[in-house]
Each structure stands twice: as structure tokens, then as C-alpha cells.
């Protein structure tokens, strides 16, 4: 790409600089993401665009003419109902050209993830690429950008040890449950929602032999699919609150736009449970459970950030490997950028 040619640009915000309570307001629903994608497509100065929308990051990768891409994107985001544009701008980062490639390589390799070295983000990037391709928003630049990112991720996964010794969120949650209940074979678990992270955590509990698993999801088919995977029992979504006093562990991973469980309700639930503790894992973003509920005694509430912090405790041991990987990814990004410039 020459200096006057369209620029490759990444605009976004992620868990590094944006606290959870802001991130949950920035999270785009699938409908909002589609709306944004359409707006990007319609904009004359934006030639190519893809949206990466996960619970920990919202990024727009675009190829655009002119210097006001950020303004255009802000206006588009402002047109989405209830989207806090000002907060987004306060926490947003912008990477251009080689920095954008460098950033994408790190993201794809899981080095920019909350759980360093995780692989889920690669699948989410692939999904973002597929969606944008389907919308005919991927041209030669973004195609190469994504393909090279996937290759970089594959290299990091196979040629380095960044994933070695990594603790999954599911294992962290199970470990915490063991510290509360001891043996989990008599513990009852309720899974609300059927998202990917929730499924991973539910599977971890099943593998540790929890006594009974109930699943409630707005999408009945997805609940049934998960119930087959973890040998659980599907319950109607509108009855999960009645079940709560009788379970020990609650895994919440819905895509509800606001919290579905408040402190007062939980107070009542705890009263019905007499002296038995309750362990709630809130994996949703926006969060499903009112954060102030953690003040209640005999209730242990963990969210995505809490679990990731614990999972990353062994990161120090892997730091050298991560540093080596980062240097190599920087080098790869540099070569990719050079080849893209030559091609253009």
C-alpha cells in the first residue's frame, strides 16, 4: 500500500483498558452487530470491514479512504440504540497499517486475550471473517489480513509453548466450587444460557461428576443440544428462578441485555437454602447478576474477569515463552505489511 492508498485500520476496545462495568455496556447484540456491519457496508469511504464482537472486545477492522474513519465509526455507533459512544471513545484504541496487523496477530494467537494463550478467540475471528465475507465486505486487503492472522495463530500454537500449563475457565470454576463444597458429587448445578463459555464451564463440572445438571435457555434447541453434551436436564426458561434455591452452583451465560438476577431475589433464595452456601458464576456480558449481590454472606459470586485473573496466575511461568512469541509475531507482522505494500 502506498502512502496515498486506503488505510488498514483497527478501532476497538478490549478488557485491557476497559473495565467490566463499561464493557458490558459496550457489548453489541447480534442484531446491533449486523446493523453496524450494514452501516459500514453502506459508507462510501469504507471499502472493506469486519466486526470482531466478543465478551472481552469489540473491534472494527476496516480498509478506508480518508482520515476521518474514527468520526464515521463514532456516528455509526451513535445510531445504535443505547450504545454509549462517549464511553467507547474514552476507552478506544486505534491501530493503523502495520500496527493493525501486529495487533491482529497477537489477538489471533490469544496473546491479547484475557486468558493468555486461549484458542477461543481464533474461532471468533474466523467467524467474524466469515460473516464479513458473506456480507461481501472482505476484499483483498482484509482477506490477506485475516488469513495471515490465522497462520500466525497456528504458528504460535504449534511452534511455541504459550498454551502449556494454561488453566481453563472451567477448571478454575470447578476448583473454586471444590473449595466451597468439597466433593462435587452431591452438588446440583444449574446452567442458564447456552453460550460457548457457559458450555465449556458446564462440561468441566460434568467431568467432575456433579450430581445433577439442569439447563435453561431461551433457545430451546440450544438447551437440548447442551443437555445432550453434558447429560443434563432441560427445564423451561421461565422456571429457572424457582429452581435456584435447590441448586448449589449456578452458571449464568445468557445474552440478556441487562441483569436477570438482583440482590433482593438472591437474598430470598439464600433464606430458603438455610445454611447451604451458593456459588454463582456469571460468565455473561452484560453481566446476568447484580454485582452488589456478592456482599451477601454465604454467597460466592465470580464473574468472567475474576475467573480469568485466577487462571492467569500461572502466567509468570509462561512469560518468557510469551515474550519470545511476541517478538516473532512482530517480525511476521512486519513482513506481512511489507508484502501487502508491494502487492498494492
Amino acid at each position: 500500500m502506498s502512502s496515498d492508498s486506503p488505510r488498514l485500520i483497527t478501532i476497538g476496545c478490549n478488557h485491557h483498558k476497559t473495565p467490566l462495568e463499561v464493557r458490558e455496556r459496550l457489548a453489541l447484540s447480534s442484531e446491533s452487530a449486523l446493523l453496524l456491519q450494514n452501516k459500514l457496508k453502506e459508507h462510501p469511504e469504507i471499502l472493506e470491514a469486519a466486526i470482531l464482537n466478543t465478551c472481552n472486545r469489540m473491534e472494527i477492522h476496516a480498509v478506508a479512504n480518508g482520515d476521518s474513519v474514527m468520526d464515521h465509526v463514532s456516528r455509526m455507533l451513535g445510531s445504535i440504540e443505547d450504545f454509549p459512544v462517549q464511553e467507547f471513545l474514552e476507552h478506544a484504541y486505534v491501530h493503523e497499517n502495520m500496527q493493525a496487523i501486529n495487533h491482529a496477530f497477537r489477538v489471533a494467537a490469544g496473546l491479547d486475550s484475557q486468558l493468555v494463550g486461549e484458542t477461543q478467540i481464533l474461532g471468533q475471528m474466523k467467524s467474524s471473517y466469515a460473516t464479513a465475507t458473506k456480507q461481501k465486505m472482505v476484499g483483498p486487503v482484509l482477506h490477506k489480513f485475516f488469513q495471515k492472522s490465522f497462520q500466525a495463530a497456528k504458528w504460535a500454537r504449534t511452534e511455541t509453548k504459550i498454551g502449556t500449563g494454561q488453566v481453563s475457565l472451567g477448571n478454575v470454576a470447578v476448583e473454586l466450587a471444590t473449595r466451597i463444597f468439597g466433593k462435587l458429587t452431591v452438588s446440583r448445578t444449574l446452567v442458564i444460557g447456552s453460550g460457548e463459555v457457559g458450555r465449556e464451564v458446564a462440561k468441566a463440572f460434568r467431568s467432575r461428576g456433579v450430581a445433577c445438571m439442569s439447563i435453561a435457555s431461551r433457545t430451546h434447541e440450544r438447551a437440548q443440544k447442551l443437555s445432550r453434551e453434558i447429560d443434563g436436564l432441560v427445564i423451561p426458561f421461565n422456571s429457572w428462578q424457582d429452581t435456584l434455591p435447590y441448586v448449589d452452583i449456578g452458571i449464568f451465560a445468557t445474552s440478556a441485555p441487562m441483569s436477570i438476577l438482583d440482590k433482593a431475589t438472591l437474598q430470598n433464595v439464600l433464606r430458603k437454602r438455610s445454611r447451604k452456601p451458593l456459588f454463582l458464576i456469571d460468565l455473561a456480558l452484560p453481566r446476568d447478576i447484580d454485582a452488589s449481590a456478592s456482599e451477601l454472606s454465604n454467597l460466592y459470586l465470580y464473574n468472567l474477569d475474576d475467573l480469568a485473573d485466577i487462571a492467569n496466575e500461572n502466567l509468570k511461568n509462561r512469560q518468557k515463552e510469551v515474550d519470545t512469541c511476541l517478538i516473532e509475531l512482530d517480525r511476521k507482522a512486519h513482513y506481512t505489511w511489507k508484502s501487502m505494500k508491494l502487492e498494492s
Binding site: 478454575v172 476448583e175 473454586l176 471444590t178 473449595r179 466451597i180 463444597f181 468439597g182 447451604k276 452456601p277 485466577i310 496466575e313
Partner: peptide, 12 residues
């Protein structure tokens, strides 16, 4: 979660 805490017995 670190240090002595993870070796403590469970609450129940």
C-alpha cells in the same frame, strides 16, 4: 486463590 488458601478445607 494463591498460597495457603487453595490448601484450606472446603467450607461445607
Amino acid at each position: 486463590n494463591s498460597g495457603v488458601f487453595k490448601f484450606l478445607p472446603s467450607l461445607v
